[in-house]
């Protein structure tokens, strides 16, 4: 069926949101901010998926989004736990200071 809003719009919007998420990851120094930018990226991808699912009348897209949301939740949990743990030791979550793995 022909959607009311063409799928291209959704895809463009998704790309823009994704870009903004990428910029956030690259520019911000706060680890939590970076995390939130990652969430933004995930959402952008989800949006794109659902848009295409509707166009193709394929439930697969929506199901993938379902799983992505779940996994994003899991990831956030673990990631924030990590941040907490790091903060305890280093007393800072500025990622520029977290360069102990420097080669």
């Amino acid at each position: 069926m022909q959607p009311a809003v063409a799928t291209e719009y959704f895809v463009v919007l998704s790309a823009v949101l994704f870009i903004m998420g990428v910029l956030g990851v690259l520019v911000r120094r706060n680890a939590i901010m970076i995390f939130m930018s990652v969430e933004l990226m995930l959402n952008a991808a989800n949006l794109s998926l659902v848009a295409f699912a509707q166009q193709w009348s394929n439930m697969g897209g929506q199901l993938i989004v379902f799983f992505v949301i779940t996994i994003a939740a899991a990831e956030v949990a673990v990631g924030l736990a990590l941040i907490v743990a790091i903060f305890r030791t280093k007393k800072s979550i500025d990622i520029d200071e977290l360069n102990a793995m420097q080669g």
Binding site: A4, N46, L47, V50, A51, A53, Q54, I69, A72, A73
Partner: peptide, 21 residues
């Protein structure tokens, strides 16, 4: 984004998005 899901005939996902995310 949840609103968009509603527009894209994914009501359940919209609710999930709001609840979980």
């Amino acid at each position: 984004v949840a609103f968009f899901y509603l527009m894209l005939s994914a009501p359940f996902l919209a609710m999930v998005q709001i609840t979980v995310y």
